[in-house]
Structures are given as C-alpha cells and as structure tokens.
Design a protein around this nucleic acid. Structure first.
Lengths: 217, 217
DNA sequence: TAGCCGTCTTGATATATGTCAAAATACAGC
DNA sequence: GCTGTATTTTGACATATATCAAGACGGCTA
C-alpha cells in the first residue's frame, strides 16, 4: 500500500504486514475496549465500524473496503473506541502498530504515508460532518451512493451497479437519518428515474443527475 | 507540549517550535489552498477553522484554544483544505512539518505523541459526527457549552462563566443548526434556570442539569 | 415447499427545526 | 457621544424528517 518504497523497504514492510486472517460475515475484527495493538488493513471484502455511545445510541462510522485502514482512532487512548465487523467474508492484515512506528522511523516515505493516511481520515470525517450538518436527506443519500460508486469503480467493479451489504437502518445510522427516510428517499430516486432499486441491488441510471443533487440546495 | 521527553530532546523540540507569531482578531493563520508546510500550535488566545464548500456553504470545523494544534487535515493533500482565523489576539507557533517528521524519526516519544494528536483529532471528529447525527438542538448546545467549560477549566479559567467569542451564526454552523435555533435554545436554557445568558456572556447556573441534558433522549 | 423472522415499504400523523420578517440590542467608527 | 451596521431575539408560519403502525417482501430453515 505505501508508495515510493524501494524493493528492500517494501520487503520489510511486507514482513510486518504478513499476518493476514480471514473473517466470515458478522465476525468481529476488534471490539470496543480491546487493547490497541494493531491497525487493520482490509485486503478483500469489506467491514463496518460502529461506535457505541454511553447512552445506548449506536452509530455506524465507516464502511471500509479493500485497501482501507481501520483502527486509527484507537491510537489516542490505547483502547479501541469502536468495533469493527465483517460485512462479508474478508481478508484483513494486522499491522502491529509499534512495529509500524519503528519501521516508519527508519523509512521516511513510510512515515509520510502513515501521516497521510491519518490526515485523510480527518478530511473524510470533516466531509461527513459537512454532510450531516448541512445536507438534506436526498443529498446525503446521493452523496453516499456516489461515494460507494466511486470506490467500487476504483477497485475495478462497476460504478453503476452494485449490491449494498448494509441494511436501511445501518445506512440511516451512518447518514443521520431514520431507516424509513432512507427507504423513502430510495423510492423517490427510483420514481425520478435516477436509480433502479431492488432492495439491496442498486443500479445508477442517471449518474449526472444524481451528482447534481449533491450540493444543490 | 509533548510529554516524556528528556531535557535534551525537549530542547531540540523547542528549537523547532521557536517561531512564534502574534495575530490580531480576524487575521488569517492560513487560508484554503495555501501550500501545507507547517502545523500551528496555539500558545495563547483562540482561533477558529472554517471549511468552504464548493457550492458556497461554509462550516466551522473547530474552535481551538491554547495547547491545541491546527492544520492536520492538510497533511493528506499538501494543501490546506480549510482556513484558520484568530478569534481574539493570539500567539501561534509554527511547526515546520518536515522538520517535525525528521525529529520524530529520532525521538520515539515525540513520534508517538504526534500520532496520538492525530488520532485524538479523529476521535473528536467522530464525536461531532455523533452529535450531528443523533442529538437534538438542546443536546447539541449543551454538549457544546460543556465542552467549552471543560476546556476553559483545564486552562485555569472558570468552568462556570465565560465569554463566547463567536456569533450565533458560527455556533450554528459548528452544530448544524440555524442561528435562530441557537438563540432560542439559549433562551430556553435561561428560562429553565440552567444558564444566565447576556448575549455572549454565559454563566452556567446548573451544571448537573445541563449535563443530564446531553444524551438524555 | 411452507412457515417464520428480519427487513423493507408505505401511509397517516406529530414535531423539531427551518424560514421569513420585524424589532431590540450591542458595537464600531467617526 | 452619536450614528449606522451587525448581531441577536422573538414571533408566525412552513416543511423536512421522525414516529407510529400495518402490511409486503425476501431469504432461511425445517
């Protein structure tokens, strides 16, 4: 994953990231309260992360796909503050963090890469904050679908047709909406010819119009 | 700011953070689009950061006080994606990032400290996401005031009485509410004896009841 | 294949917050 | 200290989304 590494540096990094494991659907990668020892790099499949609030509220904080990293929030406290669950059969690499720090002290390009990954997570969170604080339901869902589409596309899958691995409730939790609102908004999009929705099977029929939805208010 | 450094390490870090500058109210510390070269550590006073969305929407993303760090989001792109403005006369240290990386390669405790700061920012953003996606106006404002109170307290100021440096509009932008809603919510709190509000002069009259507001729905 | 459970859709209604507008108040510059 | 501008408060009303409820659908298991 890191760029700009020489062959020998790459080798050292791969030695560190060698412990790959498979997870089946619903299996936990880590749980809230677990001691923080490692970051987790998704190699195949996808996972979701969920924060459990003291008062019982829960929120989905990310849907991660291959090439993405989970667990960055735990560095600050040495304990995982959220939990990560496989949404489908997955391959996940465990990256022991103290070894990663050690190696990144020796390989400046790796160090910079790690910093960029953490910073990118901050930027991502800020754009979700923007979504939550100023977008209407239709904009939120459109932004969500376009984000998925773009990430599927970057991984060689169709940007237009894909299967959602999450429930309406989970989408709502991620977008700050109730599941009924998510469902209704899917229906609106379908009525307007933007999407074809067969429960979890989504086909984007009019990408441009869907894009024009985001940030139109 | 970093902990656990030996005297000589501390000296090297201070050499790096020596370029302190004063800013007067309203002055920019950095602007959107500026090349990313440094992080900024607030030494006195406070600043706000603001993201300008393509479509003209703007959002306040943080209110920072002394001891806090600004600019972490820019690492990912090498350009500042938000702008930082002094809210009152300020002292701000510029920390050249490549030098900070260099030094943190040599001082593991500094490296770990930097990672914790970035991770803490991610956790902070996630708690704002939670606030935005699931709290009602009263909960949001109560959480905001309690957060300020706690941070003032940590800096040796009264946790009960303080002056807001931001407008209702800015509070609203930060909390995902319209300014009228912020104003009305202040009035409600005052009617219920939780606060005394004299425009920007806030006094918390009933801390416990204010706390019980957050996460009560 | 039938039956069951979780998920999803849709409708009717409630409610919190947004919108628009006007007046009151605070603040800055002269 | 006065005048003009920005901010804040408050009211009346609009509206997006939540809530409550019922039924439909889909996928699993026996």
């Amino acid at each position: 994953m890191p760029a700009n590494l020489s062959a020998s540096e790459m080798e050292r990094f791969e030695a560190l990231s060698s412990s790959k494991r498979s997870y089946s659907t619903g299996e936990y990668v880590y749980r809230t309260g677990d001691r923080f020892l490692s970051l987790y790099a998704i190699r195949g499949g996808s996972i979701k992360t969920r924060v459990l609030h003291e008062d019982g509220r829960e929120q989905l904080t990310s849907f991660l796909m291959s090439g993405e990293i989970s667990g960055l929030d735990a560095i600050s406290t040495d304990f995982h503050t959220c939990e990560a669950v496989a949404m489908e059969p997955c391959e996940v690499c465990e990256l022991p963090f103290s070894k990663l720090e050690e190696l990144s002290r020796e390989i400046p390009n790796l160090q910079r890469h790690l910093h960029k990954i953490m910073s990118r997570e901050i930027v991502r969170d800020q754009s979700i904050m923007m979504l939550l604080s100023s977008m209407r339901a239709e904009e939120r869902l459109a932004a969500f679908l376009l984000n998925l589409s773009q990430r599927f596309s970057a991984r060689g899958y169709s940007p237009n047709a894909f299967r959602l691995l999450m429930t309406r409730h989970e989408i709502g939790s991620y977008l700050g909406l109730k599941l009924e609102t998510v469902s209704r908004t899917f229906s609106h999009f379908q009525e307007h010819g933007l999407l074809s929705v067969k429960v979890r099977e989504i086909e984007i029929m009019d990408m441009l119009r869907l894009r024009s939805f985001v940030g139109s208010t």
